[in-house]
Amino acid sequence: MDQITENLGKKSGKMLLFGGVYSNLQALEALKQIAEQEDIAPENCICTGDIVGYCAQPEETVQLFKLWGVKSIVGNVEIQLRENADDCGCDFREGSRCDGFSQLWYPYAQSKLSENSLDFLKTLPNYINFSYADKQVSVVHGSYFNVSEFIFKSTPWQVKQPNFEATKSNVIVAGHCGLPFHHEQNKRLWLNPGVIGMPANDGNPSVWYAIVDDTQSTLSFTHKTLNYNYKLTSKLMQNGLLPKEYSRTIVTGIWDNTEILPAIESGLQGFGIQL
């Protein structure tokens, strides 16, 4: 399928950035309320992809997302679902625990999504770009070059730099890795707002998003935590079809394993997010 970029033109005012809804309807409902309280219009809310994932309500989540009217790019999960692929495309190591878990939650998600939801996923672009506070911003999932590439705070700048050059951007907004962070160098900003569908391996059930602002005629950003009805999310996941380890993570805020994490991020498990 062709790579599609949606250009939003010039944006202004507060914007809400988030990723990884992962079929977590309760988190999405809570975030929608935050946007309304902050008076942030749907067109100023952008998701970095993976609307569908580990949790119990993929169909309801996609339908609420569609109803809300916010913007999103595709994550690897959306690409795989709309192509009716056999796996989630998360780039987990074959035979790993994450790979094993995906063989439970991905078929579950496939079985629950309506044709209407799949048609909606097919409308999502691969990338979004826009100008904001005199900066060019590009939204990618993993990286510009690989939707499933895991980019972390500790990932060397030499790996991040080509993304700015390829997109001609000052700011890259990215997702996929599950952890919120920002990394600034050479007057460039890599901003990952985090995900709302799963905790950030920090020992806290709350999840993460970001708000950017241009009121001072410059781009400023704030990482935010989101509280939601995680107990209900966890309970719904205990249906005998989804990994019980993920339902436990929803409550404990600790990942079952750190297979995908570099040494630095792995060592921070349970110690809170270092921003």
Score class of each variant (00 low, 15 high):
212 V>N: 08
23 S>N: 09
155 T>K: 10
17 L>T: 06
55 C>R: 02
152 F>N: 04
44 N>T: 01
9 G>R: 07
27 A>N: 01
149 E>P: 03
199 P>M: 13
213 D>Y: 05
183 H>V: 08
25 L>P: 05
229 N>E: 11
81 L>G: 08
7 N>E: 10
69 G>R: 11
44 N>V: 02
21 V>Y: 01
134 D>E: 14
152 F>A: 07
114 S>M: 06
259 E>V: 06
250 I>M: 15
61 T>A: 09
61 T>P: 08
207 V>P: 05
260 I>P: 00
120 F>W: 05
193 P>L: 13
96 S>W: 00
1 M>F: 12
169 S>R: 14
177 C>T: 11
234 S>D: 07
157 W>Y: 15
70 V>K: 14
246 Y>H: 03
179 L>A: 02
168 K>I: 08
119 D>R: 14
100 G>I: 02
269 Q>Y: 02
5 T>D: 03
109 A>P: 04
64 L>R: 12
76 N>H: 04
112 K>F: 01
74 V>A: 05
40 I>M: 02
165 E>V: 12
28 L>P: 02
185 Q>V: 03
137 V>F: 05
248 R>W: 06
101 F>I: 11
113 L>K: 13
261 L>W: 04
3 Q>W: 14
8 L>H: 08
140 V>W: 01
1 M>T: 10
180 P>W: 08
108 Y>T: 00
272 G>S: 09
185 Q>L: 14
148 S>P: 02
54 Y>N: 00
106 Y>R: 04
232 L>N: 15
7 N>A: 10
184 E>D: 06
49 G>M: 10
